[in-house]
Amino acid sequence: MLEGKLEQASLFKKVVEAVRELVQDCNFDCTENGLALQAMDTSHVSLVSLLLTADGFSEYRCDRNLALGINLVSLTKILRCGNNEDILTLEAGDSADSLVVRFENTQQDRMSEYALKLMDIDQEHLGIPETEYAASITMPSTEFQRICRDMQSISESITIDCTKGGVKFTCEGDIGSGSVTLKPNSSADKPELCTKIDLSEPVSLTLSTKYLLNFCKATGLSQQVTLKLADENPILVEYPLSAGHLRFYLAPKLDE
């Protein structure tokens, strides 16, 4: 059976909120190492990969691997019944047909319990190969969100060019064009505002603005985001969590 307790419901609420537009039905794979989710979006151009490791839970127990088939729209409805600061417990028996979600307030004088019906989901699981990325950019997640938001009204695509000198986001649309260049910077007292570039060779990828902006729903989970790029490969957009990560992969647009 699975029993996982999170000291703050907000983490789980935010994670589900961040992926629920891309993915509707998915399996939460529960193992002794933690909770994992891997799913493609409905149009199959992006992939979500979530890991909440066991040490991120204040209590965690999973003695047999379980795949919990969950409709994220329904899960969202149940998660909205709890407050962000509540203690959240997830519980499922080995052959359970529902996931029990329990909320307890910090004063410990209000307990609520909801059961979410589970589904049988036959999901294709993709193996993500080890990729040597040409560039890795770590930047404030709010900055990445702002760029995607600003460029959304101009173009359906954003081109990311990364060189040693900086990273340049460019868009071109019917009304005109735009670009934002960020140079590496460091600030010892505010590391969350730094932009860091690790580069082995210059790389350029063109990606769908709509999807990038969708990934930005995870902005509240982490102050920094890492973009990893390799030529003609999916971009990896990673939001680190205190124990685990939320990763998005997006296939690049290919020039004929």
Binding site: V45, L47, E124, L126, E156, A251, K253, E256
Partner: peptide, 14 residues
């Protein structure tokens, strides 16, 4: 508009 491949053309089924 540019072509966009499915993500599964990059990642194999496991």
């Amino acid at each position: 508009p540019l072509d966009q491949d499915a993500i599964s053309t990059f990642f194999r089924s496991s």
